[in-house]
């Protein structure tokens, strides 16, 4: 059974003057248990719509989303989910601890377990000192961390996080990445949306890219990274001042006694043969590739142009 199963999910909103807007055009997606999935897309692409459909906050026009085999329209489907909404807001007259206790009670957690888990997550997210203060006095980053804490407290198998890194400072972002990696190690399924590729590259197993309501790419992260290799920058130790060319490749840059050559993938073997023949020392081989960001931008550009 897939942790998340989305089939033909279609959502139409009625906008102003009876205009129909297709926010999501037939999405199919399967996320396995234990998988960390990054859902990439520019603003307004349909990421949040997808997540709200998965949480039963919206009703699909057609198709279905299932979590642990249960339809998202059922209340019980959310029992195995830790959900962080986009720009979350919580009853601001409560303290973080009270809210966590409320969330725990909704998941029918036992009193002692709840107390233990609550302390754990509040300490982990550095909210322990502020736990009694009403949340209306919290900073944006603190509220975001409360959001994560309440998603983590009942230790579910599936996590659905809408923009988990937004509103956080670099330290906070690193903490979140850490938490996601930790969940991955413990075999949990994490589905998170973002528009920042760097987040995905570091933690995800798989990535899906959505543009204008359509899934335009779906692949493992390493496949994308591998397919993106364009060439290598090779550093050679050459004390002589005169410039050489190897296999027709001209000098790219020279600093002190080091010469750098930019070699495309196809010319790599020939270039290295020449280098070996002349007995030149190789100091460093750098992989030159398009990163996920470029991949993402190229996809978005072509999809939007279409």
């Amino acid at each position: 059974m897939n942790a998340i199963q989305i089939t033909g999910l279609y959502k139409q909103f009625s906008g102003k003057r009876m205009k129909k807007i297709d926010a999501l055009k037939g999405l199919d997606l399967e996320i396995a248990p234990g998988e960390v999935f990054g859902f990439l897309g520019p603003n307004g692409a349909g990421k949040s719509t997808t997540i709200k459909l998965m949480m039963g906050l919206l009703r699909p026009t057609a198709g279905a989303a299932k979590i642990m085999g249960m339809d998202a329209g059922q209340t019980e489907s959310r029992r195995s989910v830790g959900y962080l909404p986009e720009n979350p807001a919580f009853y601001d007259y409560l303290g973080a601890e009270e809210y966590i206790a409320f969330v725990g009670s909704q998941f029918r957690m036992g009193k002692s377990l709840l107390a233990r888990r609550s302390e754990e997550v509040l300490k982990r997210l550095e909210l322990w000192d502020a736990r009694k203060r009403p949340m209306r006095g919290y900073s944006k980053g603190m509220v975001q961390r409360v959001g994560l804490a309440q998603a983590l407290v009942h230790d579910p198998d599936v996590y659905i996080l809408d923009e988990p890194m937004s509103g956080l400072d670099p330290i906070g972002r690193a903490l979140v990445k850490d938490i996601i990696l930790d969940l991955k190690r413990r075999g949990k399924c994490v589905f998170f949306s973002t528009h920042i590729t760097d987040d995905v590259e570091k933690v995800c197993d798989r990535v899906g890219v959505i543009v204008k309501g359509t899934l335009v790419a779906l692949d493992r992260v390493e496949n994308i990274l591998r397919s993106g290799v364009e060439g290598y920058l090779i550093h050679l130790k050459m004390p002589e001042t005169e410039s050489f060319s190897f296999g027709g490749i001209e000098l790219f840059r020279r600093t002190d006694s080091v010469s750098e050559y930019y070699v495309p993938c196809s010319a790599f073997n020939g270039f290295m043969g020449e280098v070996n023949r002349t007995g030149t020392d190789v100091l460093l081989v750098e992989t030159k590739r398009r990163d996920l960001e470029d991949f993402f931008l190229a996809l978005v550009k072509s999809a939007q142009g279409a």
Binding site: K52, M55, G56, L57, T75, E76, R78, R79, V81, Y83, P85, N87, P88, A89, F90, Y91, D92, V103, Q106, F107, G147, Q150
Partner: peptide, 14 residues
Amino acid sequence: ERRYTSSVLGLPLS
């Protein structure tokens, strides 16, 4: 209005 519903209704609460 304050989007409390999206967090509360995301819980297993009908």
